[in-house]
């Protein structure tokens, strides 16, 4: 029992390290799309691992922790997909080393340039 709890704590520690890596990726990546890649998804795995670790430590809490894990798995990719779509529609620039942009060739492309003069 004690061993299981220590394994769970170590899993939580691994999850927190993934969260940290996600945040570092958020800082280091050059453009918005890569930030979405590195930021939101590494941290998604980090959160899932933290929940799983606490589930191993406290087995009586499995119901709510399982619901949390499933909801994180379902909602997070949808939100990052919608965000990336909005970014491409707004005309957020890709970084200079980008090889190819097939989406731009297909989509009717409306750059929203006056998005930034929202203030008065």
């Amino acid at each position: 029992m004690e061993l299981l709890a220590i394994i769970g704590a170590l899993i939580t520690l691994a999850g927190s390290i993934f969260l940290l890596l996600g945040a570092i990726g958020l800082l280091r990546m050059p453009d918005s799309y890569n930030r979405i890649q590195a930021g939101t998804k590494a941290s998604t795995l980090g959160t899932i691992l933290s929940f799983a670790g606490i589930l191993l430590i406290m087995p009586g809490w499995w119901g709510k922790l399982l619901v949390l894990i499933i909801s994180v798995i379902i909602t997070n990719p949808v939100s990052s997909h919608v965000l990336a779509r909005a970014a491409h529609y707004m005309g957020v620039p890709l970084t200079k080393t980008t090889l190819v942009d097939k989406y731009r060739e297909e989509e009717e492309y409306i750059a929203v340039k006056d998005q930034n003069n929202e203030s008065t």
């Binding site: 999850g15 927190s16 969260l19 996600g22 945040a23 958020l26 930021g39 939101t40 941290s43 998604t44 980090g46 959160t47 933290s50 929940f51 949390l68 994180v72 997070n76 939100s79 990052s80 965000l83």
Partner: peptide
């Protein structure tokens, strides 16, 4: 988004 995920943990 990352802030909220970290807050969840």
């Amino acid at each position: 988004d990352v802030m909220t995920i970290a807050s969840l943990a």
